[in-house]
């Protein structure tokens, strides 16, 4: 038998008995989220190269133009998708861990200077409770994005398919999956009921709840896939609009 020091029960950042590289799980989140944040901000302020032929960048859809607005049109609309993702139950987990280190990982110590933890009970994080309103906006935005994706099949008044068409279609499918796997939607369509068999429209609501529940299990995957696809779609259209790429016509 040999003795080693008493376990330290005070918390400081990174304190843990874990043996694995717990910080590795933070890296993809920091890289993807941080990278997307920088790219999306730059593109939102750029205010050009967002349209090419029948393609419209998702950062600029719906395209609003007002004579009194002198800045990038993306700045008029980006609050809605940004709010939806920021208040998303999955992303909350990801960024509370990766950026707020609250906690950085399970059973890993947090920064010791935080004395008055209030979670989501006080401003600003109490605003996470408005997630369902961003969901309603996200569903509205999806209608515009589906319209854009369908319009991307029309080249000079004729049916056609370009690589951009397929990218936009994939993007809107992933965004639809992300939006319809939302925890708030799961609650609204049926989760709020205690008794499906006694409620008005209880049976269809149970079916809707079950369907959203299946999607909801993959909410994290849809969240990341749709984030990447939005960035990639915008990037492709930007490259076309700036003349760096040529669109590949399939049909």
């Amino acid at each position: 038998m040999a003795s080693s020091p008493v376990p330290n029960r005070t918390t400081h950042l990174g304190e843990t008995q874990r043996r694995d590289a717990w910080w590795l799980e933070l890296l993809p989140i920091i890289i993807l989220f941080g990278g997307f944040g920088i790219y999306a901000t730059a593109r939102a302020f750029e205010g050009k190269f967002y349209e090419w032929g029948p393609y419209l960048s998702p950062f600029y859809s719906p395209l609003l133009s007002f004579s009194w607005w002198r800045f990038s049109p993306a700045l008029l609309i980006l609050g809605a998708p940004l709010g939806f993702r920021t208040t998303c139950y999955y992303y909350r987990k990801a960024y509370y861990r990766a950026f707020f280190l609250d906690p950085p990982a399970c059973t890993v110590g947090e920064p010791g200077f935080r004395k008055n933890y209030s979670g989501e009970r006080r401003f600003p994080f109490i605003l996470q409770n408005v997630h369902r309103y961003f969901l309603y906006l996200a569903i509205l935005f999806l209608c515009f994005l589906w319209y854009d994706a369908i319009r991307a099949f029309v080249f000079d008044g004729k049916f056609g398919i370009g690589l951009g068409t397929l990218i936009m279609l994939l993007d809107v499918c992933l965004l639809t999956a992300y939006t319809f796997s939302c925890h708030s939607l799961r609650h609204i369509v049926g989760g709020k009921l205690d008794c499906f068999s006694c409620a008005t429209f209880g049976v269809p609501r149970h079916s809707a709840w079950s369907l959203v529940s299946v999607l909801n299990e993959r909410h994290m995957i849809f969240a990341w896939a749709s984030l990447v696809s939005v960035g990639a779609t915008d990037f492709y259209i930007r490259m076309l609009a700036s003349g760096a790429f040529k669109d590949i016509r399939i049909l």
């Binding site: 909350r92 509370y96 861990r97 933890y117 979670g119 989501e120 909801n216 299990e217």
Partner: peptide
Amino acid sequence: GYCNITKCCTEVCPEEIHITDNAII
């Protein structure tokens, strides 16, 4: 409201209850 849904509870549950997704949220 103190819960900031970082899902550690779900990760450790030996009965594999989806604590965060099915109960807390």
